[in-house]
Amino acid sequence: MKEFAASLETATPREGVDLAARLAWEMVRKVQPSKSIRDRLVVIYEDDAETILMACQIIATNFQAIAAANNYWRD
């Protein structure tokens, strides 16, 4: 996984969404540092629509902060 920049600033909204997803994943890694346990849990949750929607909500919340930090991508 790439290292994070020290800023929430991105060049485009697409880069903002990518950063939002990476931030969400980094939180998962902090909460559960064991890769083997994360790998085991992914198999359990990957077919659970509710869990997938909750992950999307977390990414969307991160994206709101990133969009604001980028002044909603100036022209």
Rank of each mutant, 00 (worst) to 15 (best):
K30G: 13
R40Y: 15
Q64N: 12
A60F: 03
A65C: 04
R38C: 10
V42R: 04
I37E: 15
A20S: 13
E15K: 13
K30N: 13
I59Q: 08
Q64L: 13
A21L: 06
L53S: 13
Y72H: 15
V31M: 15
D75K: 11
S34C: 09
A68T: 08
R29I: 04
V43E: 09
A69N: 05
Q64A: 12
S36R: 07
A67M: 03
Q32M: 14
R22W: 08
P13L: 07
D48G: 08
P13V: 11
I52H: 13
Y72K: 06
D47C: 02
A67F: 00
M27H: 05
C56T: 03
W73D: 05
A21D: 10
T10A: 10
T61C: 01
T12W: 05
R74S: 08
D75Q: 10
A69F: 00
V31G: 06
A21P: 01
Y45A: 09
R22K: 09
E9V: 14
V31R: 12
I44H: 06
E50M: 02
A49R: 05
E26R: 14
E15R: 10
I66H: 00
C56H: 09
L53T: 13
A68F: 01
L23I: 15
N71S: 10
F63N: 01
I58V: 05
I44A: 15
A60S: 07
L19S: 01
A20V: 01
V42D: 06
L23C: 05
F63W: 13
R22N: 05
M54T: 15
I58L: 13
K35W: 02
N71R: 04
